[in-house]
Design a protein around this nucleic acid. Sequence first.
DNA 1: CTTGACTGGTTCGATATCGTACTAGATAGT
DNA 2: ACTATCTAGTACGATATCGAACCAGTCAAG
Lengths: 149, 149
Amino acid sequence: MSEESGSADEVFGFFTEIGIINQLSTAMFAKSLPDGVHPSHFSILNHLARMGDGKTPMRIASAMQVTKNTMTHSLKVLQERGYIDVQPDPEDGRGKRVFLTDAGRAFREEAIAQVSEQFRHVIGGDQLTIMRRIRGDLELMRKHLDDNR
Amino acid sequence: MSEESGSADEVFGFFTEIGIINQLSTAMFAKSLPDGVHPSHFSILNHLARMGDGKTPMRIASAMQVTKNTMTHSLKVLQERGYIDVQPDPEDGRGKRVFLTDAGRAFREEAIAQVSEQFRHVIGGDQLTIMRRIRGDLELMRKHLDDNR
DNA sequence: CTTGACTGGTTCGATATCGTACTAGATAGT
DNA sequence: ACTATCTAGTACGATATCGAACCAGTCAAG
């Protein structure tokens, strides 16, 4: 193998490792969420709670790294469950604004409690140490990929 | 916030970062694959080429971290495309064995070339350095999650 | 042997996601 | 002011994935 395919193997192996960790953590996450609520739905609520609501669907889609189609679908689900309130954007006739309802905020709090409980059994001191150690590098990698996609 | 929710935030942020990297790399990967071939399909071919074919669907499913339902579906796609050959397991009346065809091997080679080409433009020396630096920690984390799910 | 528990694989229904195409409103160029 | 281009959101079809239910073959306990 040439040095190019050697690094290709390295790159592929790296992203494979990332993929497996993502899948295992997402599955664990999904299991600790109440029935029928997908991790991506929770992420939207979490984003709105942390960064402030009243954002447009497109802004949320960009932040969540999904297409606007997916966001339309996810918001419909959250709206049906009464966790968000979607209103027309007063400043842009095309746009909408997404607001958290009290039920949405309550649900998020509850979900965080359940997820924390679940993860407390799996994530120990060693794991936290690893997370803190490589977090910066992960952010660098993410930013680079994001800028060069 | 208490120290527990503090570490919950840390954990959540870490896995979010992992998820975004996974999504960006998968999307990039998918774009550099020929029409209609999903990254997961390629991964199966790659696994069979690297680890040797003749494995059962269940073994492949475990290695790929997907359910057997998904494997049934993926194998059907690969078979329709003529990339694999599925035969009954002579040692187990329930089981099957999956073999790569010449077309499957050729397709894998070609895909690797295309993917390498694509990634060469995005993954530079800095990124390789990061990958090498955190690869060991990622493997530790993956193993831990895998053992404790 | 025979029966009960387990395992490999398939089928079915549900869902999250994406790509393409479309509509309606906004914005820039002339 | 008009037109062309761009953008926000939706609709539709396709697909990957999962969970639950199911069938058929294996295996162990008596």
